[in-house]
Design a protein around this nucleic acid. Structure first.
Lengths: 215, 215
DNA sequence: TATATTCTATACTCGCCAGTATATTTAGGG
DNA sequence: CCCTAAATATACTGGCGAGTATAGAATATA
């Protein structure tokens, strides 16, 4: 405590980076995140249109205007869910950025993390909800993020074909097939599912890598 | 015509199976089918909740009460779309019923027909719309049909493992992966897509059968 | 041609829900 | 201890859209 105060006075004289004001900012962010998480869960479970802001508010033990204190409107709430879900998937690519394994192995890592993301509340919400419910502007952003993910998978496939770890194939269609299979997990996955996301990814990868035909 | 009339009088004396009454019944069915098809297209394109019955009516050059003359309510309209879509997929299994090819080849045929169904208006609508919007009773019926399809694919996989045409694998997860990849086509497929459904199925089958790993 | 039935339209109701105007509480800052 | 700003609540509005009451047109049957 004394240390903190000492530091702050070095950085700036009157304004402290650890004032209660800052704590409030963090508090606000925490609450906002909670709003978005609860929304994601509700959207995932009941669908966007079957969830009212009153539902979300009451789930948070709060009333509607409070929700509006943290987000501009219902659409933005959905957008934030999309963003969080897509962000989780993006992170899968971050993790292999500095790997020097062959591309097929790296793809395996991405698939596993992808499966984990898609079984989360945000991932599930993202798949359940349609971007038909987003305004053109928001929808464009979501599409851009989705495209980035698609291109990431395609790139891995192409690299794999180049480095010999992947059989020559139509990278675009293969990427669609893989992403589709993964996305669809959200439609059948329940929290009481005996298999974990990682285990599901393992089985999927067996199929994608080895194929159905006996070797 | 004369033949028909001769036959009918044999069957029953006073009631004719080809009276104008019957023509009206057929007419009614044709109109009802048109209502459902237009609904499917609208649901697919804009989503269930973003489509009003007025929209559908106006698309048919008609008003809302007319629509209600052919279906009980909006939910039933959605249900009929589901049913039509699922029926198309079921037909894929009918077609291979009497085939004596190995199971992997039969699965290939099913996948191809499945892809065709999923790129149709009904198939697309089925995937876009959530069965969250169906009453518990309707939802149960839809789930039963979906389960039948899932079991059909699993069965083919098991038969393939038994007859040696398919590598030993987790049939349940493989079926989920394959169906998921196929269902997801509806999310990116557009009518201006350069590849036909059959061509898409070909590429998907290459992946499913041969796998990514070079052979 | 009278009559019943089917088909379609006009013109409503009614509830839900996103969003808001306004008041009240809470907590820092001076 | 007052004052300002953030946080939350109460109580509303306004519109959209599912579903309907009712009437009129078309068609078929007798």
């Amino acid at each position: 405590m004394a240390v903190r105060q000492a530091r702050k006075s070095i950085i700036t004289e009157s304004v402290s980076p650890w004032t209660p004001v800052d704590a409030r900012v963090r508090d606000r962010k925490r609450k906002r995140d909670a709003v978005i998480l609860v929304a994601a869960r509700a959207f995932r479970q009941h669908g966007y249109h079957n969830t009212s802001l009153d539902d979300i508010a009451s789930e948070l033990n709060v009333t509607k205007p409070t929700v509006y204190h943290y987000v501009a409107n219902k659409e933005q709430l959905l957008f934030e869910c999309f963003r969080a879900g897509l962000h989780q998937i993006m992170e899968a690519f971050e993790e292999i950025r500095n790997s020097n394994e062959d591309a097929r192995t790296r793809l395996g890592a991405v698939v596993t993390r992808y499966a984990e993301a898609i079984t989360s509340d945000f991932g599930g919400c993202m798949v359940q909800a349609e971007n038909q419910d987003l305004s053109p502007a928001m929808s464009r952003k979501v599409k851009a993020l989705k495209s980035e993910i698609d291109q990431g998978i395609r790139q891995l496939l192409k690299e794999g074909i180049a480095d010999g770890s992947i059989r020559d194939c139509d990278a675009k269609m293969a990427a669609f097939a893989i992403a589709g299979a993964l996305n669809w997990i959200a439609h059948w996955y329940r929290s009481d599912e005996p298999l974990t996301a990682v285990q599901i990814a393992e089985r999927y990868l067996q199929l994608f890598e080895l194929g159905l035909r006996p070797r």
